[in-house]
Amino acid sequence: MTSNLTDSVLHYAAFTADPQGGNPAGVVLDAASYDAARMLAVAADVGYSETAFITEHDMDERRFTVRYFSPLAEVDFCGHATIAAAVALAERIGPGLLVLDTQAGEVPVLTVADADGALHATLTSVPTHTRPASGTELSEALAALGWKQSDLDTELPAHVAFGGVQHLVLAAATRARLADLDYDFDALGEVMRRHGWTTLQLVWRESDDLFHARDPFPVGGVVEDAATGAAAAAFGGYLRTLGLAPHGSTVRIHQGDDMGRPSLLDVDIDAADPRVRVSGQAVPIKQ
C-alpha cells in the first residue's frame, strides 16, 4: 500500500458520530505480513469485539481483502468493523465505492461525505437467508438467557438468520425484557458454538420501522456488542422473508443504549433482492 496507510492499529467507533458511542473497532490497514496467529493476538490485545485486518489490496480497483478477528476467534464477516475500515480507507484515499473481499463473500461499501465532511458508509451484504429456529435451539437459548417463552413477541417468531454469519433472532415482548439482560456467559457461549451462531439478535419492535436490539457475543469473548452490522443485515433478510417489508423499506435499529454506547443502524431492504444494505457513520477514537 502507499506510505500513508499505516500498519498500526487504528481505533474507530462505528454506527455513531460520537467517539463515546457506537461500537469500537480496531482497523489495521496493512496486514499483508500478518498470519492468523498474529491477527488473533492483536485483536486480543486491542480488546474490542472485532478488529479488521486488510491483508491484500488493489488500489486502482479500490478492492481490499479483509479478515476479522474477535479476542477469541476469527469471524467470517463483521459489519461494524467493515464500516470502520471503509471510513478509515476513505479518509486516506477519498470517498467512493470500495469492494471488500471477506470470507463470507464480496461486500461492496459506498462511502460518502456529507456537507460537514463527516463520512458515512453503506455496506451491501452477501445474500441473506433465514429459517425458523428449532424447538431445541430455542429452548437451549432461552435457558441460557434466563428468558421464558412468555417473554417473546409471538408475532415475530424465532429464526436463525444469515447475513454473512448466522444469528439467532429473538424478539422480546417488552422493552423492559430487552433491557434486563443478565445471562449465563459460559452456557450461552456453549449453545452458540454448538449451533454455529455468531451473536444473538435480541430485538424489541417499537414500530414497523423502528427496532431496539442487543447482541450477546460470548463466542467472541465479549458480553455484548454495542452495534452489530452483520446481525442488522441478517435481520433485514428476516423481515423480508416474514413479509414485514413487502414493498421494500428502511428500518432503523437502536443498539447500545443499555450499554451507554448509543448506536444507530439504518437497514435498507429490497423485497426483490436477498442482499441488504446497512448504513452508518464511523469516527476515530483518540488514543
Rank of each mutant, 00 (worst) to 15 (best):
T82N: 04
P108G: 04
D7A: 13
V283S: 02
L178C: 05
F211C: 00
P218F: 01
E137H: 05
A113I: 00
T102N: 13
D45S: 11
V9N: 10
I54R: 04
G26Q: 01
T136W: 05
T65A: 12
V66F: 09
L110C: 00
E50N: 05
R63T: 14
G47V: 07
P274W: 09
D153N: 08
V267N: 08
A44D: 09
G47Y: 07
G22M: 01
L138E: 10
E74T: 15
F77C: 03
A113W: 02
S279C: 09
L200V: 15
E155S: 05
M259K: 03
G196P: 04
L188D: 09
S134K: 02
L97M: 07
L244M: 15
A36M: 14
D273Y: 06
D60P: 01
N4R: 12
A25I: 05
A226S: 12
A179L: 03
Y238E: 04
I285S: 01
G26W: 00
E56C: 08
D258H: 08
L170H: 08
D18L: 13
T6A: 13
T111Y: 00
G229A: 12
P284S: 11
V222T: 15
T154C: 13
Y68T: 11
M59K: 10
G96K: 00
I54W: 03
H212S: 05
G22T: 09
D151R: 00
R214P: 09
D180N: 11
L119G: 04
S125K: 02
L264Y: 15
E74H: 06
L200W: 14
A104I: 10
L5R: 10
P19Y: 04
A144D: 04
A143R: 10
T174N: 02
L119A: 06
L244Y: 12
L142A: 10
A172P: 08
P19G: 10
L170Y: 07
V126W: 00
